[in-house]
Design a protein around this nucleic acid. Sequence first.
DNA 1: CTTGGAAAGTCAACAAGGCTGACATAAGAT
DNA 2: ATCTTATGTCAGCCTTGTTGACTTTCCAAG
Lengths: 171, 171
Amino acid sequence: MAQIAPAVAQKSGESLLFLTDEQLRKGIEAMFFAYRGFTADPDRILEEKGYGRAHHRAIHFIHRAPGTTVNNLLSILGVTKQSLNRVLRSLIEDGLVESRVGHRDKRERHLYLTEAGLELEHQLSDAQRARMRDAYRAAGPAAVAGFRQVLEAMMDPEMRRHFHRITERGA
Amino acid sequence: MAQIAPAVAQKSGESLLFLTDEQLRKGIEAMFFAYRGFTADPDRILEEKGYGRAHHRAIHFIHRAPGTTVNNLLSILGVTKQSLNRVLRSLIEDGLVESRVGHRDKRERHLYLTEAGLELEHQLSDAQRARMRDAYRAAGPAAVAGFRQVLEAMMDPEMRRHFHRITERGA
DNA sequence: CTTGGAAAGTCAACAAGGCTGACATAAGAT
DNA sequence: ATCTTATGTCAGCCTTGTTGACTTTCCAAG
């Protein structure tokens, strides 16, 4: 059902060989193995500190959008408030995150990294960016552009909105 | 520490603007959001059947390398045998996977998908490939080549070996 | 032939991090 | 005054990862 015969490639002007099931499977496996590498370095650092990936995600997005509300973080991370709350509570207790009551709407809590939080964020980010930088450098700018295009096309629309919102400040 | 100033770009002949921290952060976030999309469709199917991602991974790689041993699967998946065993046991009990005692070495178990297993594999794979295909088509062949280059550069060396071994038959 | 060690399986216990459901509180909105 | 929203919290459940200990099977080296 899903086999795209090479003959189909004639349909368009360009070769559609990159859409064969075999190519798609390779892409799927590449995503799987690459994601392991992507998380490996932060995971090691987090383990030492007794944290997990969930903490990393919270720290990352709070750093990226300081003052974000719990609800906003919830929709970015796509988890339940109970799940996020467990993580946030430990980060707040450990003094990595500060929760400030909203100025206009006092129901909201605005989240900020403390000095210690920023320090851990840097440590995690440095490790992850180092791997990313090596991969980017090895592949070159054209490949990086393609990489980003495919990733973006792979996102759910709602996630793509988050991605653009978070990303749109800065180059 | 990790900031690469635009001035550094002059060092090489080509622009190194794609290696700024901001660009790297975007790449990191793109990976995060894209991976969610990548797993979303299979996750929905698996949930209906009472399985999880761990089952999907086992099914995928057994399909990809029929007759693989437990130990081989273990090193591909990077989990403990206890963890994999729990998943395999349920798949065997449910008749999706068959475990055959080794011909030469009778300690080894060779794993195969049954008819039912193949059927589920197809269902999961179709969903995941559909998203992949849409993303590939939207981005175009050049972008796909870059995508694959960056992903491969991002893998740990051992995972890259697995990737090549699994992938090297076929185009 | 015996024994060492590898491959596999199993049991128990635990932790992280998802989930649901129920409920409490504060405060904006109507 | 009441409805709704934002947040927090308690309890309980599931999946999927972990370690450690132990058994069975069986190849291979002595």
